[in-house]
Design a protein around this nucleic acid. Structure first.
Lengths: 248, 248
DNA sequence: AAGTGGTCTAGACCACTAT
DNA sequence: TAGTGGTCTAGACCACTTT
């Protein structure tokens, strides 16, 4: 353990990144224990022959990653494990859409509906106004992976039906390649159990554990224009994350 | 809309943060549309009278937040909405533990067990070796919120029982205040349905949707010393996140 | 060749904390 | 008062992309 802990000026890896890795490695080896203070920034400047800004950037990197915490006037400290700060990236969820070839979105139904109060409260319309209702089944290599339902605002003055169907064309939304009029979205993740229709479509049994990913999308006028949710079988998906000091 | 978009040198907010907010505001207003290029860094330097490093830091901030993407030699671009990159912070989960007063961890059972192959494969021991098994019920304001089961490595040469019970004393783990010998952990999040015993303890019904948060913790020798999981009723917890450009 | 982002320097000044 | 982190400057040089 412990390669010569100095910065290689000829490396492709930037100095700030090298220094961050050196410090992380020392924390992983127990050179700096949780709760203890790191050398001051000026000391690090001298030891590693880099400028203050570069040290600063290394420390900021480690602080962003939750490895250390800084306190003005006191110093930089190794952070103890904190389960309260972990985050999950839904990379696994995204991967369901990554390769356009094996993933297909089958449109099960599109129709104009009259908005009930629940729908009207989610997308910015009045009860009784018309809305577009869509159902999709997304298959991965032939077998069903996701069930999607969505309500869209309907504006007769615009060719929205076609547009919005493209907007929510899932590949674009999940790879950031769609040119949309969507400004922002809110996503909510819940645990659920498959209902009868959901179980049928996803080729599973009723009450099977599943995830529900609800979404609301807003246009550039900050009006909610889409409300819907994905249902994913629980056995097809799980999320993993790490906390603490990982050196590999 | 659009306060005079210049940097206030007397503000408590740092210049790099002010500039990032100005740019984010302009993107939110549609001044820069998704996919389009932002002014170059040198142009921003001139317009806002700040040094290149300060502009750089603003751009890095926005890039870290997923609002823009940079491409060397080409420019900085407004990122279209990308569902593939959203992350969930389990803030809501942490909040279950935040105030020590209303949250209590009741130890239901502690005993020494002989490790079966499944247990042995998760914590670094051999089948038949002894391990500590613990069950806890965490209550929030009197009503059950979480059920926790855990297997811990047993080392007769150390007073581990008491130590580890303290180590995993949940408040410390969730607030980063415990002085532990835990270096890192891996967490996995699954959808599940309550089993009979779980339903009884959580005062719910069998097959109710629930979350399972599995954990493995490692010591500074990189050996897994703890394997366990939390069961949370689905109706007590959901996770919300946002994507795209939020200006408020 | 010109323009872009990416890294880095060698200082400066400030706010805060400890002694 | 001395030491710490936090911000910022006014440049420099490099790698990359476009024209």
């Amino acid at each position: 353990m412990g390669q010569s802990p100095y910065i290689d000026r000829n490396s492709f890896e930037p100095a700030y990144s090298q220094l961050a890795n050196i410090l992380r490695g020392q924390m992983a080896e127990g050179v700096f224990l949780p709760g203890s203070r790191l050398p001051s920034e000026s000391q690090l400047c001298q030891k590693y022959k880099v400028s203050p800004m570069t040290v600063r950037r290394s420390i900021n990197l480690l602080a962003d990653q939750g490895t250390v915490s800084t306190s003005q006037g006191r110093g930089t400290f190794v952070k103890p494990l904190d389960l309260g700060e972990f985050t999950f990236q839904l990379q696994e969820f995204q991967n369901l859409f990554k390769d356009k070839n094996s993933t297909k979105a089958n449109l099960l139904e599109v129709r104009i509906v009259s908005a009930d109060p629940v729908i009207a409260s989610h997308i910015d319309i009045n009860t009784g106004d018309r809305a577009i209702y869509m159902r999709r089944l997304i298959t991965k290599e032939g077998s069903p992976a996701l069930y999607h339902q969505e309500y869209l605002m309907y504006d007769p003055t615009l060719p929205i039906v076609e547009d919005e169907m493209e907007v929510t064309s899932l590949h674009g939304l999940f790879t950031g390649t769609s040119e949309t009029n969507i400004k922002k979205g809110k996503l909510t993740f819940k645990a659920t159990a498959l209902k009868k229709e959901e179980a049928r479509l996803l080729e599973s049994r009723m009450n099977t554990p599943a995830f529900n990913l609800e979404h609301i999308f807003y246009n550039f006028d900050n009006k909610p224009i889409s409300w819907g949710w994905f249902i994913i079988r629980g056995d097809l998906l799980s999320f993993t994350t790490t906390v603490g000091i990982w050196d590999e």
